[in-house]
Design a protein around this nucleic acid. Structure first.
Lengths: 187, 187
DNA sequence: CGGATCGTTGATCAACTTCAACGGTCGTGG
DNA sequence: CCACGACCGTTGAAGTTGATCAACGATCCG
């Protein structure tokens, strides 16, 4: 966390431990669920080690993930978090994962006490929003096959760590079709 | 702008005119292009009146829009803006549009002079990012037909103001298929 | 060893795209 | 003010991508 913060803003190292006191450290087992659809979304999560994903249950009963978070990423249903309303999403650990969690109220206090965090989150969210717009570009431009190939090429670490059916779900295609693509590539 | 700012943060009204001095006011004719693919992305745009859209030229030569901005919305390629790199997108006026533009350097100064803007943009981008994740939910969950119907139902003003082929492009379907859907609904 | 979980394969089928041609409307210049 | 052209929406036929379903294999973990 410390190193990550330093990449975006500067602050007194002596303040860091007080900053940390606003967060709760969680140790999540693989498959553990930390945010549940239907509940108030009042936490924001930072991944220190491991991997989380945010998904929802589609009409047809299958689970669809809309976002991953590896080390150094924040994850939450930011719209519901901002409005302090219920969320439609679940957040689950893909692997055993170490997380820093902060509640909405605590984050407000943190911003008040250390305004540097306004700048930090402004930057983080700007990047997240921008990346999301960029992803939209690929979703619109490429065939499903090319979406998959483009993704595995650009994020090979993901393809290693995360089960295929989650990647399929994230990219909006079926696991069966991913199989077909991989078979085609092999031959 | 004043009223919009007030919705998210509080400040001294007497400061407002100085805040405004960081921005340039632009009057864009319909179809005018204000950000060009291939160029450095160093402006951020606020729509006061009218409508902008951000699009790119797909492999196949058709234009694909990834984002609209009506009154009260910010628009830019936020990733390229943050990194101060070239963008792949164009931003164009859908109608005659009044815009406030701010350069990267000016925005940095603005944040420094009025830290309240860090909080403002933190909030704005958080909402934008959250909304983008929510859009992803619909893109994954619904058929193209339902995506279109859901969109026109939830944003009827859009469907009025914006040409159909732009909406089609934004939602990721062909204008021809939109025609088919509308014909089906009529009968 | 046994069961759940995840990936694979192939057949069938529907949703959606592509292409080409037509028609209506708006705005601009003559 | 009319006429022309550009622009946008529509229609229908043909074609393709990618989903669905069901069954089988492999692997991991208790």
């Amino acid at each position: 966390m410390h190193g990550h913060l330093k990449k975006y803003v500067s602050f007194e190292d002596s303040d860091f431990s007080q900053m940390l006191s606003y967060f709760d450290e969680l140790d999540l087992k693989k498959k553990a669920i930390v945010m549940k659809a239907g509940n108030l979304c009042n936490h924001n999560y930072f991944v220190m080690d491991g991997c989380l994903h945010m998904y929802f249950n589609s009409e047809k009963g299958t689970e669809r993930t809309v976002q991953f978070a590896l080390e150094g990423w924040w994850i939450s249903d930011f719209l519901a978090y901002h409005n302090q309303t219920n969320t439609d999403f679940n957040i689950q650990a893909v692997e055993n994962t170490k997380v820093l969690a902060i509640s909405y109220e605590k984050q407000e206090q943190l911003h008040h006490e250390f305004p540097i965090f306004e700048r930090y989150f402004r930057t983080i969210h700007q990047i997240g929003y921008g990346a999301s717009l960029n992803k939209m570009k690929y979703l619109h431009d490429l065939s499903k096959e090319d979406i998959y190939l483009h993704f595995t090429e650009h994020f090979p670490e993901f393809a290693q760590r995360v089960p295929q059916y989650l990647i399929a779900s994230f990219l909006g295609l079926t696991p069966e079709y991913v199989s077909e693509i991989r078979a085609k590539k092999r031959s």
